[in-house]
Design a protein around this nucleic acid. Sequence first.
DNA 1: TGCCAGGCGGGGT
DNA 2: ACCCCGCATGGC
Length: 315
Amino acid sequence: MVEQLSYTGNLEVGKPADYNFYLTASVYNFSFWFNGETLILPIGEFILFVRENDPVLKADIYSPPGSSRVGISPDIVKHVLGLSEDLRGFYELASKDPLLSDSIRVLAGMHFRAVTPWLASLVAVCQQNASFKQGWRMYYNIIKAFGKRVRIRGLETYIPPEPGVILRAGPEVLRATRIGYRARTVTGLAELFSRKPYLNTWDIRPVELEEELSSVKGVGEYTKRLVLALSLRYYGKPPIDRWLRKIASVVYGVEEESVEEEYVKRWGNWSGLAALYTTVALDAEPLSTALERIRAGLTRPDPSKYSPLTLWKYL
DNA sequence: TGCCAGGCGGGGT
DNA sequence: ACCCCGCATGGC
């Protein structure tokens, strides 16, 4: 069953001169949410069609039948798109960084789109103990299996599921998303966000969200930090996994045990963003390939690869 | 064919 | 505080 959404208005938001819409729309995205030109942005029950209309971004708003029409504020759109995120401090550090200085030339103006804490937690769990490809395939499967299929202007897209949808669907549908043993964790997260819906906002304090996430079995330090970065734009604590731990130990010449300390010393409140940028700069290559690329000085993204920036062309 | 990953927790020491 | 192992799945 495909539901039809209808046009209910539009809004314009200012676009800073150094903001790169194409990169922001591209990074870690799927084909049903970006086609190379228009960003199809689900926010709550609404879908926004966002495109560049210099010097602003223009968003057409589509709503389900009988919906309240209110509920999309420019501030929300700005948060999601990172329009009020001032990255100058980050670029200053990155320009002197042995790993990222090269890539910021081509990635300047890219922001990571924010998702809700609930969806960020799904993304994060899918990254656990899996390659980039497998992780995003799992998240893709979840959106397609549980999301709401909607039609707008003749094209089909998906509104991601609320946590209750996953709880009601039963374990066999979840198994079909091929997330393996992560299913337990996803169920635990769905229970948490169902029980405490106030956690699933962009106003929640990072420490509170972090603490609540800790109660879910299967959610550890890495997952929590990734959630804070992807939903709240909180970058003070970097999500360091085996991949980044090894890479940073090589690049900065420190023991793996002290990578986090070194990372926070260098990046401060930009630590989490630096971690995310690193995955883009190295095309999220598996560890051994990533290390070879660093040795060869190939630390810019390669547009011909299946990578965080081109994922939307493949899935 | 077997390994073995952008984690994590449980059970050992 | 540490190791160390299993875990679902898919990619190589």
